[in-house]
Computed example of a mutant assay.
Amino acid sequence: MSALVRVAVLGGHGKTGRAVCAALAARNVDALPLGRADWSDLAAAVAGCEAAYVIAPNLHPDEPAHVAEALAALSDGGVRRVVYHSVASPYAPAMPHHLGKAVSEDLLRRSGLDWTILQPGAYLQNLDLSGPLDVPYSPDAQFGFLDLADLGRAAAVVLTQPGHTGATYELATRVATVRELADEAGVEVRRVPDPKTHPWLSTMFDYYDDHGLPVGTQVLSALLGRSGGERSDG
C-alpha cells in the first residue's frame, strides 16, 4: 500500500490525466486533477500534495516555460516528488514539439526535486479502429504503441513506489504498424494527404514516414510486473 495521501495531476482533466487519476484511485491514493483555471495560484492549489504528475497541453507553443512555471509553483507549494509526462524520442530535431519536451526534461533534472520522467509511445487510443482508418503517414511505419490504461498504471507505480527517483522510462504496450493493427481489427487502412492543421504535426508525419516511432516494451512489463515483452489487454 502506498504511503502517499494525495497526488496533484497537472493537466488532470484530459485523457492522459484521467487515466493517471483512475490508476491512482485504484491504489487508494487521492488524485487532485488540476487545469489551467487552477494556475492563478498553483502553489496554493497543490498544498497538502506529496507528489505531482505534470502533463503539458498538447502542442504547447512553449512547453519549457509552462513546465518551468509548474515546477516553481510545485516547489513553492511544498511538493518534492514530481513525475513529468514527456514523449518517446524527445530529442528529435525534426519535431519541434518533441524538442520542447527534451528541454523540459532538462529543467526537471536540474530542478532539485525528486524526479522521474515517463516517455510514452503513441497512444493506441489515438487510432479509431471501428471503421476504415485514415492516416497521413505510412501505415507500414513501426511504432511502440501505448495503451492509456497502461500509462496510468505505470504513472501510479512510479508515483507511489520507491526506487524510481532519477529514472527515465520509455513506455510501450506493444510494437506494431498501423496496418497490422487495422488488419487485426478487420478494417481497411488508407494513406491520406496531410490535412496541414498544424506545422508541427506536418513535420511529425514526415518523421513517421522516415523513421516511425519505435519503443521497446520490456520497461513497461517490468514496471507493471508482467512476464514477457509485449501485451495489449488494456
Rank of each mutant, 00 (worst) to 15 (best):
Ala56Val: 07
Ala26Asp: 14
Ala47Pro: 03
Asp41Thr: 00
Glu50Leu: 11
Asn28Phe: 13
Ala43Cys: 10
Ser40Gly: 13
Ala37Tyr: 01
Pro33Thr: 08
Gly35Ala: 15
Ala47Gln: 15
Leu34Tyr: 04
Val46Ala: 09
Ala56Gly: 15
Ala26Met: 05
Ala26Ser: 13
Pro33His: 06
Ala22His: 07
Ala47Asn: 12
Ala23Ile: 04
Cys49His: 02
Gly35Ile: 06
Ala47Glu: 14
Pro33Trp: 03
Gly48Pro: 07
Glu50Met: 09
Ala22Phe: 04
Val54His: 02
Ala22Gly: 11
Asp41Phe: 05
Leu32Asp: 00
Ala25Asp: 01
Ala22Ser: 14
Ala37Asp: 15
Arg36Thr: 10
Ala26Thr: 04
Pro33Met: 09
Pro33Ser: 03
Asn28Gly: 11
Leu32Ser: 03
Val46Pro: 03
Leu32Ile: 07
Arg36Tyr: 01
Val29Ile: 12
Val29Asp: 08
Val54Asp: 05
Ala52Arg: 10
Arg27Gln: 12
Ala52Gly: 13
Ala25Asn: 00
Leu42Cys: 10
Glu50Ala: 15
Leu32Cys: 04
Asp41Glu: 10
Ala51Val: 01
Gly35Gln: 08
Pro33Arg: 03
Tyr53Cys: 04
Val46Trp: 02
Leu24Arg: 07
Ala45Pro: 11
Ala26Tyr: 04
Trp39Leu: 09
Ala51Glu: 04
Leu42Ala: 12
Val29Asn: 10
Trp39Ala: 08
Pro57Ala: 11
Ala47Leu: 10
Arg27Ala: 13
Asp30Lys: 05
Pro33Glu: 09
Pro57Glu: 06
Ala23Ser: 13
Leu42Glu: 07
Ala56Glu: 04
Leu34Thr: 05
Ala25Ser: 15
Ala23Arg: 00
Ile55Arg: 01
Ala37Asn: 14
Ala43Arg: 09
Tyr53Ser: 04
Leu34Ser: 05
Tyr53Ile: 06
Ala56Arg: 02
Asp41Val: 00
Ile55Cys: 10
Trp39Ser: 13
Ala37Val: 01
Leu32Gly: 03
Ala47Ser: 15
Gly48Gln: 11
Leu34Arg: 02
Leu32Pro: 01
Ala23Tyr: 02
Leu24Ile: 10
Ala52Pro: 09
Asp38Asn: 11
Gly48Met: 13
Pro57Gly: 09
Asn28Gln: 15
Ala25Cys: 05
Cys49Arg: 03
Gly48Ala: 14
Ala45Asn: 11
Arg36Glu: 03
Ser40Ile: 12
Ala37Ile: 02
Asp30Tyr: 08
Ala25Trp: 01
Gly35Asp: 15
Trp39Val: 00
Ile55His: 07
Ala43Ser: 15
Cys49Ala: 14
Leu34Val: 00
Gly35Leu: 09
Ser40Pro: 00
Ala26Asn: 10
Ala23Thr: 02
Ala45Gln: 12
Tyr53Lys: 08
Leu34Asp: 06
Val54Gln: 04
Pro57Tyr: 07
Gly48Val: 08
Leu42Phe: 10
Ala44Pro: 01
Ser40Arg: 14
Ile55Phe: 02
Arg36Ile: 06
Val29Thr: 08
Tyr53Thr: 02
Trp39Glu: 14
